[in-house]
Amino acid sequence: MTAMTNMNTTPTRLRKINPLWWQIGLVVVSILLPLPLGDYYRTVLWRTGLYTILGLSLNIILGYAGLFQLGHAAFYAIGAYTAGLLNLHFGIPLLLTFPVAVIVSAFFGFIITRPILHLRGDYLCIVTIAFGEVVRLMLVNNLFGITGGANGLSRIARPVLFGLVLRQPIYHYYLMLLFLIITIFAIRRLENSRLGRAWMYVREDQVAAEAMGIDTTHVKLLAFVIGSGWAGLAGALYAGQLTVIAPDMAKFLESVIMFCIVVLGGTGSIPGVFVGAFGMITLPEIFRPLKDWRDAWLGFAMVAMMILRPEGLWPSRRIQMEIHAEEAVATTPE
């Protein structure tokens, strides 16, 4: 009950827009950040940013609409393969394949999730795992004879920008940063829009949302389509940096990492996704010697977090209150 009374005193107007200088400061810092670092750490930063984009795209599905998606990596792989195939077979410059990668992933997001939208909670979670695995196996089994089987695709041309071939990690970092800023900008706008509110209504109470005249099927589908499409973009960015892609991009572990980035950082919270990506990607890279035990630490962190701080490290205020309220309800007899 104490949690409830405390909440009454906290200001309830959520998410005030940050002062502009604060945002500019963050951008400047992220531009300067890789300069003193070597190529290895620049790549680590790039990877962290890439997974932040992935986390933000999953956050639309999981954080806003409250849909358990544990096969998100499939769309990441679909985006990468779309970009790779277009580049290898038709010679389309990689940067031009980006929009196609987004559209193709979004399209797959549509056809895969349309039949399973009526499922709830953990059932949805299982089907998405299955779909993720099916996508991976399709790529491994070389479905149309073009995906290169278990070895994947290699020798994808690097992206070229105004005659400049993006070869060094630093260029890829800036390319990623550009898209990361676009992502954050877009997501903040989505959050405070009619569509974003509809997602939250669905997350809060689907039956009530439907009774308020919200087409829940349509709204959930949009969350999946937008989230999947944006994951496809991250896949295309990956293809451009690595030039080699393999079906392993779609493996379950990748989906779990994305899922954890969102949940450990704090569902529905943009800074939370950054914290999550830092914990799941940057830390294991920095502590390479511990690499063998990385999964164990990861698992330990997941269990400990759920028990000690289920709302995530940097939660959106809303979700934090939701979780504590559940505890309050659970401990007080109705």
């Binding site: 779990v256 999964d295 269990v303």
Partner: peptide, 9 residues
């Protein structure tokens, strides 16, 4: 999530 964590461990 906790179950996934245990699986990893």
């Amino acid at each position: 999530i906790s179950a996934l964590g245990v699986a990893f461990i």
